[in-house]
Design a protein around this nucleic acid. Structure first.
Lengths: 240, 240, 240, 240
DNA sequence: GATGAATGAGAATTCATTCAT
DNA sequence: AATGAATGAATTCTCATTCAT
């Protein structure tokens, strides 16, 4: 009746790959049709490019279908490489999956850490954070990764651990610092908030889930929501 | 050439079934009509029992492995029935999955609607709600279902729709009413909260996710967290 | 793409059965609702009726799908009995199949033997035979049986043997006698025809096949064809 | 939890393949391009060879058991390939079946069209045709195909259509032309025979059926039979 | 290094047959 | 005797993984 997870794509996959180079490198790719390698951007670079293409393709497929339902055949097609090539770079499906998630998580971590670096009041910092988050994570591929981890975390404890260690605990630590700073500055009244930085993050997480699951049918003004939430934390603002 | 007489009937089937049943069904060995063993109700009851056992087993397996990675063979084993029996009750794997989720969701819905029914201040109601939620959902099989939907929602849009329709929108509507009542009563100052009942729910959702993913390594005092969150919403309480 | 042999009938089956009684006995069946058997048309008769219903249903199914693709479930449904009942009358699927074909063959045999009994010239006899054959066999259920034997004969040698013994050799023997009579009477000139009675039968067999396979798209005037064939055997007729 | 390293490769695959291939493919070990063993053609050739082996094996199995009762496992074994390989060449069992029949039919068609090409009287042509037919079709694999179509035609209408279009209607058209030529030449007296070329073919068809079903127990001198039939059509010959 | 044809373990689904009611 | 729920062997089809080219 429903036939989910069966989408025989089979095409449109090679679109963004065409040998998997276009996305990342518009580098020195002048020409290379008939001959073998008229312009070889040295072996290592080529390999790295392929690897990146596989990771990118895998990310799309895994977020769309989950680990078990993803076919390496499709990943290969999307990456513009042969199936066997995947095994040149990754031990097996699981290794690809784990590495891919780890790789995708790094920018998320970076992002998390840099935003607050900018100055201003804590409220201002969090407001900027909220905007950045909604723009760059919720409803984007980045958000899909978060949802992917929620989905597969139980089956891949090491992944959940990694996520916890690298993203969650760091993010919460940073958030805690910020909260403490806000308390210090008198911006935040409730001192116990520092014990549960999750509270500050929670609506953002809900936004991610919402966009992924219900966004299509019931769009959510995530920025507005996060601002109301900040009002709760900092006390209502006079001027909007 | 012609295969005949193959079925090796063996009555060890009901042996391991108790394991599969006990977890969910509190039906237990209460009565017995026609006689024979301790618990052999009539045909229809037996069928219903088996069906329930399959659903219970399926729930365990699906929440543990996700849709694609669950083997009906395992579900059957856990339910103490033969593989074919599943197909007597459900058209295919997907039908089982969907029905199972829907079935599991109903008590959740009921729960959600009854708790606030009790009287008292809005703060008291929400506090009671938080306690109930933490006890009955977060970290329990119920929570697993929620996480299951988060995980498979994208692949089973009709499920996500169902969940949205039956649980999310109803729950949010109830929550909104409660918030409006709180605003009316002067308990809640920020009127815009009524626009985003998700904010009130958010930490609870995060608690569910947390317990499922990180609970083992980094336990979270969910009740305490939810109380701090209520403090943000209602203003700090003087006496705890 | 094609999906043959999958027709999930599932209904319309119980029509001609309604407990399998109506067909044969309108006997003393006054009433028999609540009690066990207020008016038992004796056990044996009931059993025979059921058996007949199963055979009739089996014939339909087997001719439509072939042996392997026929489901006993469908046979039971069409016969208006439970699946298990089939096993009360037949050892297994194969036994049902074989007996059913044998049963169905008997009238064919009878038919074959009686027609020529009538008097007249050999030409007249064969013309009558042709008409009867086209009307009662080609394009009817009887013809389906013949085609069924052609189809499954290789897999059921005992069936092919039975068919050969009971139908083919008898039929050919009868036909040979007729030919010899025709030669004697001077109606048939080619004496060697008696060595190959198959020749006389051949166009009739082709008609059976044709109707079953191509009849829908390319109808064949079988009677006309058979008459032309008789013209070859007897020499052209003056008056048509 | 994760299954890894399961494929127990064993190179005994090609061992029993010879058996499966030799029967049908007269391709044999003729040449060898790149070297290595006795018969290792290039990729494409290997693929074509495998495909041919599958078709040959399928033909044997399908004619022996019919569509439904044939196991792809057996086809694979007979072809000397792995089960999965079949799916590299054919979408599913049905696709294999249909293509196989079509493929097998082509030579039949060719045959049909070339034989009459030779000159001589119509009687001579048909006599030659009869001999060729008996030798190359009746009682051979070719004949099995015809019987296979008779058997499965009802369940695969598109096959029956194909057979009708490509073999039957062409064959009949050719036969009709021949008959008309015979009438023109005065060899055939009954002009209406041109309306039913089936009559000329009929004994040949019966011969095919006969050899397949009863040939073992009751051999039939098909050539003699067809000659007697020709005597009917052309009038008896003086000298045999 | 790349490729993709080939492999075969594995999982879903079907259906003849049995047997408790 | 009749029923039809339950069983599990058998079969199709998929896809991760390997390896000859």
């Amino acid at each position: 009746m429903m036939k989910a997870a069966k989408t025989k794509r089979r095409n449109a996959a090679t679109a963004n790959s065409a040998k998997g180079r276009s996305a990342t490198s518009t580098v020195g790719a002048t020409s290379s049709q008939t001959g073998r390698v008229a312009n070889p951007p040295n072996r290592a670079a080529r390999a790295a490019q392929r690897r990146a293409a596989i990771i990118a393709a895998g990310l799309d497929e895994f977020t769309a279908r989950g680990f078990a339902a993803t076919r390496l055949d499709d990943v290969a097609k999307r990456a513009g490489v042969a199936k066997g090539t995947i095994y040149l770079h990754f031990k097996d499906k699981e290794a690809l999956f784990q590495e891919l998630v780890r790789t995708a998580l790094v920018p998320l971590i970076g992002n998390l850490m840099t935003v607050p670096a900018a100055g201003g009041s804590v409220r201002e910092i969090l407001e900027r954070f909220a905007e950045t988050f909604v723009r760059d994570v919720a409803g984007t591929k980045r958000g899909d990764i978060v949802r992917l981890i929620m989905a597969e975390g139980t089956r891949f404890p090491s992944l959940a651990d990694f996520y916890f260690r690298e993203v969650v605990s760091r993010g919460l630590a940073g958030m805690r610092k910020l909260i403490e700073y806000g308390i210090e500055r008198g911006e935040i009244r409730n001192a116990r908030l520092a014990d549960f930085p999750q509270i500050v993050i929670a609506p953002a997480m809900v936004a991610v889930m919402w966009q992924g699951l219900f966004g299509r049918h019931a769009p959510l003004d995530a920025v507005a929501m996060l601002k109301v939430h900040l009002d709760l934390i900092f006390g209502e603002r006079r001027a909007s």
